[in-house]
Structure formats: structure tokens, C-alpha cells
Design a protein around this nucleic acid. Structure first.
Length: 403
RNA sequence: GGGCAGUUACCCAAGUGGCCAAAGGGGACUGACUGUAAAUCAGUUGUCAGAAGACUUCGGAGGUUCGAAUCCUUCACUGCCCA
């Protein structure tokens, strides 16, 4: 791959919110790549992760995909665990202050986090470091010196702070430390390239670069990846909005969730999550536009590609077949949870016991709405004794084999 | 430290003594339509009861009243202004 092709790939799916900034970063990236080629030294690339949760979803993997692209091009990638920054809680992606985690919890989370991350990254080529390594050594004086590089106005200009200020919501002082700490990470690792989401724009472009410059280093190049919308296609994928595609919930589930993503979000999913490069993606989009490729089939291809990143190719293929059978041909899926019927148990009782509804009222409502079927027959009376063993379907996608 | 305002269901938000299980919106769920897409239409959304109805809920605790989300006291939390 020549330099321009590398740049095209590495800038795929980036989002700077400002053309000039993007141009500047592209130019600096080019400069670095040329430099690296001449010196014969790989670029030092990192992305930081706060192990605040352990259930990773597709949104978490975007920056990992980007790191992987650097890895595949032979660069030196560090997976930085924000053991110390997690203690503060990043204000960037929330409009509320985050609860502070304990050190034990952070260590515990880090383990499951990296294990999942290595489905995207190359484990052999990845360095893992913890930012507590250097942040724990900073003294109050050091912190004050770091703080001298920034003004309060710069912080207040950030979207999430400005919003909260306007809405009259609290902004805690310690939240402003976060950017300083992250900027110092870049200094401590003598970073060439830092990868992060648009929510990290300030932390990367302002804090990291400024501190490096102040401390006599060449300011890093920020690769700012776009935000992945959730399965609703609109809001950012996040656990609290409930629109996530978890990476650990099985191939069938992943495939199905990806198929439920609106068409409008396909482009960004392809750019941010798949292993495909710019040419492949453009071809798919062109064929869909011209009507040669049915959007549904394009989405299936995408869902298959993504599923096979996290599971084996065979599992991905099986998930696709299962999807076609269940939803396109309306047959029952080959795998579903099982339930042992107790004598005398009512229909509502079974739904409740199998946790297909949260309360009796909800279960009754589902039955009233004709949302409950047994072997394809709509069940009318919830209080009746469960008629006979069979496949119970609640809503469109929940199945239960009652024995 | 002082003054003022606020805290309502998953979220936003109306409600200022009975007609309040609590308007409206969002979200979620179900059905129709479909490509399990989007859009659209109809419905559901505290718990229990087959219906009538009963019970628990409006930041926490206590009180006034026949009756409180609404009034009083107190505590906690948040914001704004002043220092």
C-alpha cells in the first residue's frame, strides 16, 4: 500500500467536525508516515480505555479497529488502560458526572476488557500499559504546572461543559483534571498518533498536543473516529439508551441486532466496524444505489462480516441461516431456551417463570395484544392452564421451548 | 456562610387540598404493513384481581386534615445570586 492509500484507509470514518482541522491532521499524518518510512521506525500509536464497564459493545470496538489498521501497517500499538483516569471518570461522553470506581474494580474490569478487545486487535503485536504507571507519580506541584497550560475558558468552551452550564447542571472541579491526565499520557508515552472518538476531541487535540509541545515533544496526530449510532440508527450506541450490539451475546444475537439497524446507518457501520477498505465500501454503496444490490442483502453481507470478526466464519454463516429461517421464512429458530412445564401452570405463569415478562400485568397485556403464540396459534386466555408442550413465542423474537 | 428556586413514574415535563395511578411528549413494548429496516396506523406502559375493585407510588422522615403529589416542620441533594 502506498502512502496515499494508507492515509485514505487510516482516515476512513474519521470525524473532526471541522474541515480545516481534518486537513491539518491529514497533512500531519502524511508527514509522520513519510518520516517513519525514512527513519525505519514504526509510529507509536495508542488509544486509552477506561475500564468502567466490562460488557463491550460494537461502539467500543471502533477505535480498536483503527488501532488494528495501524498494526497491520506495521506500527507500534499500545492499548492503554486508564487505571487512573477511570478513578476520575471522563466527563466527555456524559452530561452527568460519573461515579468513581474503586481500584480493585478497575483492575477486575481491565482483564475482561482486554480479552474482548483482542478479538479485534492482534494480541501478539499489542502492548498493554496502565496510566497509573506514570500518573501515580505526579506530585501536586506537577499537576499545578500542567494546569498552567490551560485556561478555564478553554474548558468551558467544550460542548459538554457548556451544555451543563447552560442547563444549570453540576460540573465538578475534578472533571477538569481528566483532560490534563489524558494529555499527560501522551507525553509519558512520547506518542506519535492518538486514536479516539469525537468525544475525545478536546482531550486529544487540545490537551495532548499542548502538553507535548509545552514539554518539548512533537505534538501528536489525532485520529478522531466517528461515533457509531446504535441499533436505532440515531443515537450514539450506549448501554443507557439500550441500543447496543453486545459483542459477547452470541453470533445469532449479533447478526439479528445488526439486521435491525436502519439502512441509513449502514454506511457508517461499514466504515467504522468492518475490515473493509474504502474501495470495497464504495462499491457496495454504488451497487445499492443503482438497484443492483438489494439493501437487505447488503445489510446481510455487512452483518455477516461483522459477526465473523467476533466469531468464527462458520458461526457467522450459521447465524445468517438462522436469521433467514426465523425471520424471512417465519420458521422457528433452531436454538431457543427450554422450559420445564410444571403441572397446572397457567400460561401467564409460564411467561412469568421464564422471565419473558416483568410482571403478571405485563404478561396479561401481551396476551391481550395477541402477542403470545403456542406452535403458531394465538393464545387468548392467560389464566388458562398451559395447553400442551410446544414452542411458545412472545412478541416477534422471543421463543421458548416448553416441555 | 447568607438569600432564592427546585427534587413527580424509564427520561423530559404538567399538576398547588378531593374529579390523581397522576396531563403531554420521548422512549420501550404489542399488533397491522414490511426487508425483524425506515416511515405510517392502532393499542399497551405502577402492582394484584376475570370485571367491579383493592393496594403501593410524586426526594427521605414526621405532622396538619375526614382526605395530601399539593399545606406545615425537618433532613438530604442540585442550581442560581451574594460573600
Amino acid at each position: 500500500m502506498n502512502i496515499e492509500e494508507q492515509i485514505e484507509l487510516l482516515m476512513q470514518g474519521t470525524e473532526y467536525g471541522d474541515e480545516d482541522l481534518k486537513k491539518a491532521m491529514t497533512a500531519e499524518l502524511r508527514e509522520r508516515l513519510i518520516f517513519a518510512g525514512k527513519e525505519g521506525r514504526p509510529l507509536r500509536v495508542y488509544c486509552g480505555y477506561d475500564p468502567t464497564s466490562t460488557d463491550l459493545h460494537l461502539g467500543h470496538t471502533i477505535s480498536m479497529r483503527k488501532l488494528r489498521q495501524f498494526q497491520d501497517l506495521g506500527h507500534d500499538v499500545t492499548f492503554l488502560i486508564g487505571s487512573y483516569t477511570a478513578l476520575v471518570g471522563d466527563p466527555s461522553d456524559k452530561n452527568k458526572a460519573r461515579p468513581i470506581l474503586t481500584e480493585e474494580k478497575v483492575a477486575e474490569n481491565a482483564e475482561t476488557y482486554t480479552e474482548q478487545a483482542f478479538r479485534v486487535l492482534d494480541p501478539v503485536k499489542t502492548k498493554i500499559r496502565y496510566n497509573g504507571e506514570w500518573l501515580s507519580k505526579l506530585t501536586l506541584v506537577d499537576l499545578i504546572r500542567l494546569g498552567q497550560n490551560f485556561t478555564v475558558q478553554q474548558f468551558l468552551a467544550r460542548d459538554n461543559f457548556a451544555n451543563r452550564l447552560e442547563k444549570g447542571e453540576p460540573i465538578y472541579l475534578h472533571e477538569t483534571f481528566y483532560a490534563l491526565m489524558q494529555g499527560y499520557d501522551a507525553v509519558a508515552m512520547q506518542t506519535d498518533i492518538q486514536v479516539g472518538g469525537t468525544d475525545q476531541l478536546f482531550n486529544i487535540i487540545v490537551a495532548g498536543r499542548k502538553l507535548q509541545e509545552a514539554l518539548g515533544q512533537k505534538p501528536l496526530v489525532g485520529i478522531i473516529t466517528g461515533i457509531l449510532p446504535g441499533t436505532d440508527g440515531a443515537q450514539r450506541m450506549s448501554k443507557s439508551t439500550g441500543n447496543i450490539v453486545p459483542i459477547n451475546s452470541g453470533a445469532n444475537d449479533m447478526f439479528g441486532k445488526l439486521m435491525s439497524v436502519p439502512d441509513s446507518a449502514m454506511g457508517i457501520y461499514m466504515r467504522l466496524v468492518t475490515r473493509w477498505g474504502p474501495q470495497e465500501i464504495e462499491k457496495i454503496e454504488k451497487d445499492v444505489d443503482s438497484g443492483e444490490f438489494h439493501p437487505r442483502d447488503a445489510k446481510m453481507k455487512m452483518a455477516g462480516e461483522i459477526t465473523s470478526i467476533f466469531y468464527s466464519d462458520d458461526e457467522a454463516k450459521a447465524a445468517q441461516e438462522n436469521f433467514i429461517r426465523t425471520f424471512q421464512q417465519k420458521e422457528i429458530p433452531d436454538e431457543m431456551p427450554e422450559f420445564d412445564l410444571q403441572p397446572g401452570q397457567t400460561i401467564v405463569g409460564v411467561i412469568l417463570a421464564a422471565k419473558l415478562a416483568g410482571s403478571k400485568s405485563k404478561a396479561r397485556a401481551l396476551i391481550d395484544q395477541k402477542g403470545v403464540r403456542l406452535d403458531g396459534e394465538v393464545l387468548e386466555r392467560g389464566d388458562a392452564v398451559f395447553p400442551h408442550p410446544g414452542v411458545l413465542q412472545v412478541g416477534k423474537r422471543r421463543f421458548l421451548r416448553v416441555k
